[in-house]
Design a protein around this nucleic acid. Structure first.
Length: 805
DNA sequence: ACCGTGTATGTTTTT
DNA sequence: CATACACGGT
């Protein structure tokens, strides 16, 4: 491996440049002592315990810049790992900014997965893969497992493939190959778990494919079994940085520890109080154990908060104090007092949404001496995504612009996945899963029976499905319409494939690690006749896929065509289809920055790392938050994770934090009443102001609450032991399940100022097609074909050319 | 082969 | 309530 000899040769160079140091260090200005310590302590293991809003990203980037600026390390000798692409991108940008120039390359700054792909492409053969392996997403993974489960004659009802995929992911998170699964887990999935896991891994190898978990797992395996490979990277990565260390799982931990054992210059940044991904395999233990794992570790605590007001900070600290076994930090701030955390209870979820909508509009105008706040500066953070609906419905009705963060991701949409499957089949004909997906999409009259024939033929001849189909056709094993259609498809694939840059991949031993943006695999092709962007369009058109959606009359069809257009447009930024596919398989960018100010709605999980001047935290009811399921499944550990989630939520707020709960909520079509969250008890009373909900007789609960009072028990009394709350409870009981809906006796005003008329057929972005059955000012009542009757503001509707009925 | 109706079953999510 | 899947009819 000549590449590594050359890499090593650079070490001398960097050492000599270190001596010349003494360059200006503007990036150190304005750092507080703790941050500065974290930046300057370059050698040896460092744990940077960074509380929420304490400027950890700044410290982390300054540290990278410091490494570069002092000549301690060259850009390509620094391994910097993050969890999300967003974090990686931000770090890259900020390093560039701080450095005052564009770094030629930080090839090893990226997510765990992206870096592992790069490494695994170099060493794929060590785990029986070719370096052009494909990366399956969760959907492909599940379909593959379903096939295996079906082949084993397992009752999919009692033992759903979904469950198995969860189990296998769990094993991979713990870096367990099939042989290493502990005996204790043997009983899982009806005692067949390990067995099918093994089959699954074999099948992946046959398909020359990996799933997300494999990226880490394979690299750990390689490092553990090939000392020479490990040593080379240990030598090469002289400085290692890890962001969000509290979120690492066992596999990631092992991977890091193996690599860090070289120079032992590893700097992990994290906050044990923000560990909220335990359910997905993250081990808080990793960060708690850091000092034992890395002897001589230097621990730096970042405790000065630059984000929130003292009241908000105190409230958050009060809640998180309920957790045991923390590393412990005391956040403080120099900020002026500001607003107390506001707490308000509501009758039901609908009212909560209504109140929050009104409050947002009020804050936007500027209320009670507070400056007006932009909608962009406000966010609603919910525990579970189904809570979003109430807000969406309400905001659509009142015409409040909002954006949902972390909704269905662009690349997870059906049409995008279909289109990409076409691209995959064309770029790598061995991708059987992709072929299966598109063979009968659009409908080609190739049902289960025909597809099975293709499978059998392929298997008998030991070839991929495209070839199998070809042989089947040649043998005349298929007849009628299906045969002709399949012929067309196969011819299409051949044609598109030839229009691609070329069919063969050449592995280049690439020793240039610096501008290694495309990885070591280089394509050696003749120049293409048409660009990959045009080719993509051709594939979609000639395959009939575009036509399929053009003929589709469902309300979603126009949006899907729009998405396909976007997809083709996105291709322009890539050199070729392969590069694009790799990008999409690892990246889930969903930045649909619409025009104008919008309130953000997202889950608490999605909010980690973000901050907003105004934050609303609705749904603080026991069972919803903390979630009953978390507590049932993981007991105290689960509750503690929920509590950290509460901590994350509160600490997102800079100026105003409003917590709310509803006494009644429609869940799974049934009205249920709940007690306010136990976390509400844990809010320190002196930092909380209890607001009075409107429309509650006699001021309701909390209204007359003595502010600075006395007994802690009073804090409880304010909220749910108050007469008002009891009254609510009692009434909820009386009414039972039949909570009356808002009575609909709208005045239908035909003279209303609106460009719409009764009975007109309209289209709505979210609800699809419908007809107007009521008009009141600019508020319209629309009977949607799919979504039923909704009240919508007119500007969310567009008329259709269709004949009104 | 495809479409419709019926029933079961409902966190959190990145890569 | 609403969606996702399985089943049975055309």
């Amino acid at each position: 491996m000549s590449s590594f000899d050359e890499m090593d040769a650079f070490e001398g160079a960097s050492l000599s440049s270190r001596a010349m140091a003494a360059r200006p260090q503007p990036y150190l200005d304005g750092l507080n002592p703790a941050q500065r310590e974290a930046v300057e302590k370059l050698e040896g293991p460092v744990l940077m315990l960074a509380g929420a809003g304490t400027g950890k990203t700044r410290a982390l980037t300054a540290r990278i810049v410091h490494l570069l600026n002092t000549g301690t390390a060259r850009p390509n000798e620094i391994l910097a790992v993050t969890f999300t692409n967003k974090a990686a991108r931000e770090m890259k940008n900020r390093v560039g900014q701080m450095l005052g120039q564009q770094v030629e390359g930080m090839p090893w700054l990226g997510t765990f997965h992206a870096i592992c792909v790069k490494l695994l492409r170099r060493h794929a053969e060590l785990v029986g893969l070719k370096s052009n392996f494909t990366i399956l997403d969760t959907d492909d993974q599940l379909r593959l497992l379903k096939q295996l489960v079906a082949a084993e004659n397992i009752d999919d009802k009692r033992w759903p493939a979904r469950m198995l995929s969860g189990i296998i992911d769990g094993w991979k998170n713990r870096a367990l190959t099939p042989e290493k699964v502990p005996a204790a887990d043997a009983g899982l999935y009806n005692h067949r778990g390990t067995e099918i896991y093994d089959h699954y891994q074999q099948r992946l190898k046959e398909l020359n494919a990996v799933d997300f978990g494999d990226l880490l797992l394979h690299m750990v395996t390689i490092f553990q079994t090939h000392a020479d490979v490990l040593e080379q990277y240990q030598r090469w990565f002289r400085y290692i940085l890890v962001d969000e260390y509290q979120d690492t799982n066992v596999a990631q931990y092992l991977w890091l520890r193996l690599l860090a054992q070289g120079h032992k210059n590893v700097c992990c940044v994290g906050d044990d109080d923000q560990s909220i991904y335990g359910w997905r395999g993250a081990e808080v233990g990793n960060i708690l154990r850091f000092e034992t794992d890395f002897p001589g570790a230097h621990v730096v605590r970042l405790e000065q908060n630059y984000r929130s007001t003292p009241h908000i900070l105190a409230a958050a600290s009060g809640v998180i104090a309920g957790n045991e076994g923390r590393l412990g930090k005391t956040l403080w701030t120099e900020a002026t007092e500001g607003e107390k955390v506001r707490l308000i209870g509501h009758w039901d979820g609908e009212e909560e949404a209504r109140w929050i909508g009104d409050e947002i509009e009020a804050m936007q105008r500027g209320t009670r001496g507070m400056d007006p706040m932009s909608l962009d500066d406000m966010a609603i953070l919910v525990r579970a995504s189904h809570q979003m609906r109430a807000f969406e419905d309400r905001f659509l009705t009142i015409g409040l612009p909002y954006r949902v963060i972390g909704g269905p991701r662009f690349y997870e949409r059906m049409e995008i996945r279909d289109a990409m499957a076409y691209f995959r089949v064309v770029t790598s004909p061995d991708d059987d899963l992709a072929f299966e997906r598109i063979v009968n999409t659009p409908k080609r009259g190739l049902g289960d029976k025909a597809q099975q024939k293709i499978q059998v033929t392929a298997r008998q001849n030991g070839v991929n499905l495209v070839e199998g189909a070809r042989i089947l056709l040649a043998d005349g094993g298929l007849s009628g319409k299906g045969a002709a259609q399949l012929r067309l498809l196969i011819d299409g694939i051949d044609r598109w494939n030839s229009q691609l840059r070329g069919p063969r991949i050449e592995v280049v031993q690439d020793d240039d690690l610096i501008d290694d943006e495309q990885g070591p695999v280089r394509m050696a092709y003749a120049p293409p006749e048409i660009s990959h962007v045009e080719l993509a369009q051709v594939i979609l058109d000639e395959s009939g896929y575009t036509g399929h959606w053009q003929n589709d009359k469902t309300p979603e069809a126009p949006g899907r065509l729009e998405n396909l257009k976007e997809l083709v447009k996105a291709l322009e930024q890539f050199e070729n289809l392969q590069g694009f596919l790799e990008h999409v398989s690892l990246i889930m960018d969903n930045e649909q920055e619409g025009e104008g100010e919008k309130v953000s709605i997202m889950t608490l999980h999605a909010a980690k790392g973000l901050e907003f001047p105004g934050v609303f935290l609705p749904g603080w009811e026991d069972g919803l938050f903390p979630s009953q399921r978390s507590m049932d499944e993981s007991g105290i550990k689960g509750l503690e994770e929920e509590r950290r989630l509460a901590y994350v939520g509160i600490t997102r707020a800079e100026q105003v934090c409003t917590i709310s709960f509803a006494g009644n909520r429609m869940i799974f079509g049934q009205w249920q009443s709940a007690m306010p969250s136990r976390f509400i008890d844990e809010l320190p009373e002196e930092h909380v102001e209890v607001l009075t909900p409107p429309g509650l007789y006699g001021g309701g609960y909390g209204a007359a609450m003595p502010k600075s009072n006395l007994h802690e028990a009073a804090a409880e009394a304010n909220v749910y032991n108050s007469p008002g709350w009891r009254r609510l409870q009692a009434r909820a009981g009386e009414r039972g399940m039949s909570q009356p809906k808002e009575t609909r006796n709208m005045t239908i005003d035909l003279n209303a100022v609106s460009s719409f008329v009764m009975g007109e057929r309209v289209f709505h972005q979210k609800f699809g097609y419908g007809s107007i059955i009521g008009i009141e000012g600019d508020k319209l009542e629309v009977d949607f074909e799919k979504a039923g009757i909704k009240n919508v503001v007119s500007r969310f509707l567009t008329g259709c050319d269709d004949v009104p009925f």
